[in-house]
Amino acid sequence: MTEQWQQEIINWIGKGELAQATLSQPRRKDGTAAPKTIIRPIELKNGLHYQFEYHFANKVTHDNITENQASERLIELLQENYRQALLKTPDADVQLLFNKKGKAAVLKKPPTAGGRPASLLHNRQKQRVLAEGKAAPFLVELGIMTPEGLVHAKKQDKYRQINRFLEMVTDVLAYLPTDRELTIVDFGCGKSYLTFALYHLLAVEQQRKIKIIGLDLKADVIAFCSELAGKLGYDKLTFLVGDIAQYEELQAADMVVTLHACDTATDAALAKAVNWGASVIMSVPCCQHELFKQVSNDVLSPLLSQGLLKERFSALATDAARGTLLEVLGYKVQMLEFVDPEHTPKNLLIRAVRTEQPVVSTSKWEQYKQFRQFLNITPSLERMLADRWPAESE
Rank of each mutant, 00 (worst) to 15 (best):
A19H: 08
T37K: 00
P341F: 03
I213T: 11
T344Q: 05
S380Y: 02
E53N: 08
A261W: 01
Y199V: 09
E337S: 06
I377N: 08
E249P: 00
V328G: 04
D235M: 04
D179Q: 06
Q334Y: 12
K369P: 02
G277Y: 04
R128I: 05
D63S: 12
A197V: 01
T266R: 06
L303K: 03
P341Q: 11
S226T: 14
D319C: 03
Q127L: 10
L201N: 08
E141T: 09
R388D: 04
L78V: 10
A85F: 02
V169C: 05
F292P: 09
A105Y: 07
L316S: 13
L303G: 10
E53M: 09
E132G: 14
L23Q: 02
T378G: 08
A136V: 14
V169F: 09
K101W: 00
F374Y: 14
F374H: 11
T344C: 08
F138E: 01
A33D: 01
K100E: 14
L291M: 06
L326E: 00
Q246H: 05
L291W: 08
D171F: 00
E80S: 12
T195R: 09
W276S: 10
L250A: 06
R73E: 15
L375S: 10
M168A: 08
R83E: 08
W365I: 05
Q370M: 13
F374K: 14
W365G: 09
Y368V: 07
A391G: 04
I213P: 07
Q25V: 14
E327Q: 11
A70F: 03
R124Q: 12
A105L: 10
K209E: 13
H343K: 13
L385R: 06
N99H: 05
C262S: 04
D30G: 06
Q161V: 08
Y199W: 13
G143N: 12
I184E: 07
V169I: 14
D267C: 09
D235A: 11
E342Q: 13
P137G: 05
A271K: 10
N64C: 07
L291I: 02
Y199I: 04
V169Y: 12
K101E: 05
L18Q: 11
Q288W: 03
F224H: 12
D263Q: 10
L198S: 14
Q127M: 03
S361P: 15
H343G: 02
A229F: 07
Y199E: 11
Q251I: 04
G330I: 01
K272D: 04
N376Y: 07
N275C: 13
I212L: 15
T22V: 14
F196V: 09
A271G: 08
K155R: 09
F239V: 07
A245V: 06
E394Q: 13
A174P: 01
R322V: 04
T146K: 13
I162F: 02
P358D: 07
Y82R: 03
I144R: 05
A269R: 10
E356I: 08
Q95S: 14
I350R: 11
R354I: 01
Q84A: 03
Y247D: 11
Q95V: 12
L176R: 05
G214F: 00
C262G: 05
L232Y: 04
A261D: 01
F196G: 03
L23V: 02
W12D: 11
L385N: 06
I39F: 00
F313R: 12
L308T: 15
K332R: 15
Q161E: 09
P110Q: 02
S380R: 09
L325K: 02
L120D: 10
K346Y: 04
T195E: 05
K15I: 01
